[in-house]
Design a protein around this nucleic acid. Structure first.
Lengths: 202, 202
DNA sequence: GTTAGCATGTAAGGAGTTACATGATTTT
DNA sequence: AAAATCATGTAACTCCTTACATGCTAAC
């Protein structure tokens, strides 16, 4: 009954593709990936995990410490989740093509974070889509500034100008990345199915 | 039965304190004030206006063109809203003191936009509160970067670095504003009760 | 006279948060 | 043995969006 499409699901799938994780740890990485802002709460995360299990995209992994642990299998209330075959397919589908979901504000960050698992051509389309989107916005703000310059007080004006500079800075950043990619200097080697470094547990 | 506390209400009150407006026009200014992002929809705005009328903070203004219009009072399906005495009181209360609501992400922008209607001491507290908040965040990101530098691929790393630079830039901006205020150079003259420039209608 | 933009609203639902409830493990 | 932090979850609620429904006015 839930739709729960969106950023959170993608981020969970993407992180679990690197290595199996339990909820608590997942949340911490999520808050890093989702970018300085957005602190996902457990009230969002656990229902999302439940939903993904229900769809068969992730599964509870049996306690991964098969007899190697401290004494016998202690501390097992942790539930470790891993990506299923269906989940990998779904992740590939989500990362496989560019579109508004990948370049709008909500969404760009996560898609970018998983660029190492994304095709080079798609990467380029997303970067260019994002840049276009921001250029539109920049023109909008500029026009608004010209239109309303007089009736604005100093603070409102300063806020608008700062917002404009932020967008301009973002566009420059994207342009540098695009140039870099175009010259054949990607920031990481594409790994369609990453050999999961088993940097697991804390 | 709605609580509807938050940014939208404040923005509406603040804008209506400058001049009476109808919903459609209000929305456009809202989207400028709320800062490049957040395009408020009518589905949010109109219920909010209703609620504020219910509380007696704003009121429908009689058609402001008393016999001066084109012929007789044409085009009156517009509903012009203005701030009531209670609304002004409420606005003064909301702008009257610094606190988390005024320096957290959601909230800072609007409070800043109405700095011209805010006491100089409160302005300073908000700017400093915001800066502290961002400095905390900056340290968090830096620590996370040091901790996880190895296990991150080039794109994730770039994203983190870009996020960090954004925060650093924001802190510099705030520091400049704080210095400016401290030297007694505010960006606008404080107007507790602004004589409303009747730049009305399109 | 039809398209584009102005203007006002409602109903349903999505995406998340807060507050609560519970308990195990580690550190001091 | 107390406090911190790890760990998992649920229920209620908030704020906002989307999609719909309606009609006026200006421009082409």
């Amino acid at each position: 009954m839930a739709k729960r499409s969106g950023v959170l699901e993608l981020a969970v799938l993407g992180l679990l593709n690197d290595s199996p994780l339990h909820g608590y740890e997942l949340r911490k990485r999520l808050n890093a990936v989702l970018g300085t802002f957005r602190a996902i709460s457990y009230g969002s995360l656990y229902p999302c995990l439940k939903e993904l299990v229900g769809r068969g995209w992730i599964a509870e992994d049996g306690p991964a410490d098969l007899g190697v642990g401290p004494a016998l299998s202690s501390r097992r209330n942790k539930i470790v989740y891993k990506l299923t075959a269906d989940g990998k397919e779904q992740l590939a589908e989500l990362l496989g093509h560019a579109g508004p979901a990948s370049w709008e504000d909500e969404g760009f960050g996560v898609h970018f974070a998983f660029f190492a698992q994304t095709d080079a051509a798609v990467r380029m389309q997303i970067l260019e889509g994002r840049r276009s989107r921001l250029e539109e916005r920049r023109e909008g703000v500029r026009a608004a500034l010209v239109r309303t310059r007089e009736r604005l007080d100093g603070y409102t004006l300063e806020l608008q100008k700062h917002g404009l500079e932020s967008v301009e800075r973002e566009v420059r950043w994207l342009s540098e990345l695009i140039d870099s990619e175009r010259r054949g200097n990607p920031l990481a080697v594409t790994t369609t199915s990453s050999a999961p470094t088993p940097a697991q547990d804390r």
